[in-house]
Design a protein around this nucleic acid. Sequence first.
DNA 1: ATTGCTGAGTCTGTCAATCGGACCTAGCCT
DNA 2: AGGCTAGGTCCGATTGACAGACTCAGCAAT
Lengths: 158, 158
Amino acid sequence: MRPAALDWSVENCTIGRAMEILGERWTLVVLREVFNGVRRFDDMRVRTGIPRQVLTNRLAMLVERGVLRREPYREPGSRVRHEYRLTEMGLDLWPVLVAVLGWGDRYLADPEGSPLTVAHRDCGAEVRVALRCERGHEVARPRDVVPQPGPGARRRTG
Amino acid sequence: MRPAALDWSVENCTIGRAMEILGERWTLVVLREVFNGVRRFDDMRVRTGIPRQVLTNRLAMLVERGVLRREPYREPGSRVRHEYRLTEMGLDLWPVLVAVLGWGDRYLADPEGSPLTVAHRDCGAEVRVALRCERGHEVARPRDVVPQPGPGARRRTG
DNA sequence: ATTGCTGAGTCTGTCAATCGGACCTAGCCT
DNA sequence: AGGCTAGGTCCGATTGACAGACTCAGCAAT
């Protein structure tokens, strides 16, 4: 049985485009740091072990793509420096990060458990991703879902 | 104000580990294909434009890490070949893919919209990710959430 | 005024990964 | 025997990751 997807082009697929940004080895690790409140070059470098040059590139790329912005700040007794903060586009990556964290916790954690959890501010309970359709139904398993060509789908040419 | 995260090691962070697998340029694109039912080497290659060598490596890595498995199949009149199918570990990446898709649709789609949507099998409505805490509360914005050291957290040494 | 420290880089050289294109191979078909 | 096809290998050029040394601006202590 030939999968229907073969008739459709993927040239404008948004997963592909997203992965041009997210699909570099250190991008999500940098974003994890920023979500955790670590916003300064050297703090990130020391914590993550990312090579300087790579961190410089990654931060510049994320700023250029609009995921982070560079903000000046000044500690008393120091000159002006810059820190990196999430834009709205960056904040919206939060579900991606939580989804990756959930998957990693399930399959890749050490026996003692995950080193990082996310808690609901109001009640303190752990936060996870869920899938839900627009009519409000829970979607438990991947099999309950069907991929379909969307409004921007194009037929394959060649 | 010094972020609390600086006191904790990230050496065993599951996001970092997950990104060793997912953080390669083509991994999620390959998985998108498999979720879409495209399971064969050449179909993937033609659709995605991934260089042969890279696709070979990526598939082998995903099999080795347990995300995909290689299954023999036989079309009538052909010899036995292999196709790539999702393991349970692979199926569980579904929320990650939907989260990335949602973000990409919002910020990176062409004006006419996304080429790919996912629909609930029962009702046909579009499926999206949501964040929810374990007590069932909706979590609307990243600010409603606090990152915390988990059971496997280790203090930084040096 | 010199010296030193610090955060945030740049420069350089090495090694690995990506890419595109050509070549190979096993089994089926004519 | 020769051709086709899916799924690869092999090769050379380019790009990216990495480690380590060097730079640079401004504040501070001598």
